[in-house]
Each structure stands twice: as C-alpha cells, then as structure tokens.
C-alpha cells in the first residue's frame, strides 16, 4: 500500500491561548508546536503498522511554511519514509485540502489518512474536502482499519455506537482514538529522520473561501460555590432553583 498521511501542527496541549493584533491573530509567543495528536498517534502509527505488516510506503504531507519542518522531522522520526511540504500558509481548510488532493492525485496513493480534527481549529473539514476533490470515498472518525488486498475494512463512530464498513481503495480515512497506540520515537529514528527526503512543493492556485477574522476568550468564571458534603439536598436544590438545569 502506498499511504499518504496528512500532518498538521498544533500548539502543545498545555499552551496558554492568547491573541494579538486586536484579537485577530493567535499569539505564538512562547508556544511550542507539536504534531497534531490525532495525526501522530492514530493516522501515522496505523499507517506504519500497515506498512510493517504488508510492505509499502508511508509519505507524510503538510501544508505549511519552512518553520513547520521541525514538526515534519518529528513525524519522520516516528517512522514515515519521506515527507512533502506544500510551501504555503494553510489559509483555510479548503485551500489546505485542495493542495493535498492535487498532490495525491498526481502521485497515485491507495490510501490517504488524516486525523479526526486539528485540536486548534477543530473543523473536521480537511479529510472530507480532500475526498470530494479526488472524488473518492471518505470514512470519517474511524477507530479501526484493516486491509485485505484492495478492500478496507473499518470501524467508525456513529451516534451512540460503532459501524463496521467495507470500501475499496483508494479512499480517505480520518482517524480517531482506538486506531493505534501512540509511539515514542527512539534515538535511531530521530537520527534517521535527519536524512530522510523532504520535498518542498509549490502550491497550486486555489480560492480561499473562509477566514478567521477575530477571536475572543471565554468570560472568567465567577468563584465556585462550595457545598457542605453533608447537604446534598442543598446542591440539588441549587441546581433546580438557581442554575435551572434540573
């Protein structure tokens, strides 16, 4: 199988979230970037397991600028064979998906894997958009992926349960928890990553359909009201009369 894994960067999950320029830009000051957890833990690791079991090749792709190469090297250290960086700002989900779909179409992949969502913008958009741009099936929120010849057998989340589905490659799959176990890169992987091929590709012309124009932070919570542990009737009463949630 020739597998393409879409990798995005996201701020470390403990990052302080703040905005600058009149709340129009994310404040990157002091922010550490990591590989988006869904892309790394599930999509990339499952791709590597498939390759280890039946051979093939795992290419990672990211739409981003030169600063994102640190994140790419990390994904290479976990075991991907080679990397592609589309040299552009990932302006919106459509722009990002269009770039990836163009590359994938020209390079004949059997399988394109994405994470369930990016933990910064949380759109869950890019995977479905790639699939539509390539006119191939999209299996969203997959928790299990097995391959038998050119047939993919998957489990995916549906409302309140799980659905088992089958589809023929090529397809796009978005990967959620359960798909694989996180792998910690070892020293050999980190060394090898330095010399693995990283191809930089110019973007193709494409419309931008949406933009984040401003941001805001939630209002600070008022102080927590402490309830006597021996008086749960009071708590229930407050939930009814004050909070009005029961």
């Amino acid at each position: 199988m020739k597998i393409l894994v879409c990798i995005s960067k996201s701020p470390d999950t403990t990052s302080k979230i703040a905005f600058t320029d009149g709340n129009t830009k994310f404040d990157e000051n002091g922010v550490q970037y990591i590989v988006n957890p869904y892309d790394e833990w599930y999509a990339l690791v499952r791709a590597l397991e498939i390759k280890e079991a039946q051979g093939g090749n795992v290419t990672i792709i990211t739409v981003g600028n030169a600063a994102d190469e640190a994140v790419i090297r990390k994904a290479l250290a976990i075991g991907a064979d080679d990397a592609v960086r589309i040299d552009a700002d990932p302006t919106d989900a459509y722009f990002t998906a269009f770039q990836i779909a163009e590359y994938a179409k020209n390079n004949q992949f059997d399988l394109v894997l994405t994470g369930k969502e990016t933990i910064n913008y949380n759109g869950s958009q890019v995977g479905g958009m790639i699939a539509e741009a390539m006119d191939i099936p999209f299996i969203s929120l997959a928790t299990k992926l097995d391959i038998n010849g050119s047939t993919l057998k998957l489990e995916q989340e549906i409302l309140g349960g799980i659905q088992v589905v089958e589809v023929n490659a090529p397809a796009v799959v978005s990967c959620a928890k359960g798909m694989a176990e996180q792998r910690i890169p070892n020293m050999r992987g980190i060394m090898a990553a330095r010399t693995k091929p990283l191809q930089v590709v110019a973007p193709v012309a494409c419309d931008v359909m949406t933009a984040y124009t401003s941001y805001s932070l939630p209002e600070a919570k008022k102080a927590c009201r402490m309830i006597d542990p021996n008086n749960m009737d009071e708590l229930v009463n407050l939930l009814h009369t004050e909070a009005k949630v029961i």
Binding site: A211, T213, Y215, S216
Partner: peptide
Amino acid sequence: AFGNVTVK
C-alpha cells in the same frame, strides 16, 4: 477560545 469565521 472562540473564533469568528467569515465566509467569502
């Protein structure tokens, strides 16, 4: 946080 998305 919250964001405002503008559609063009």
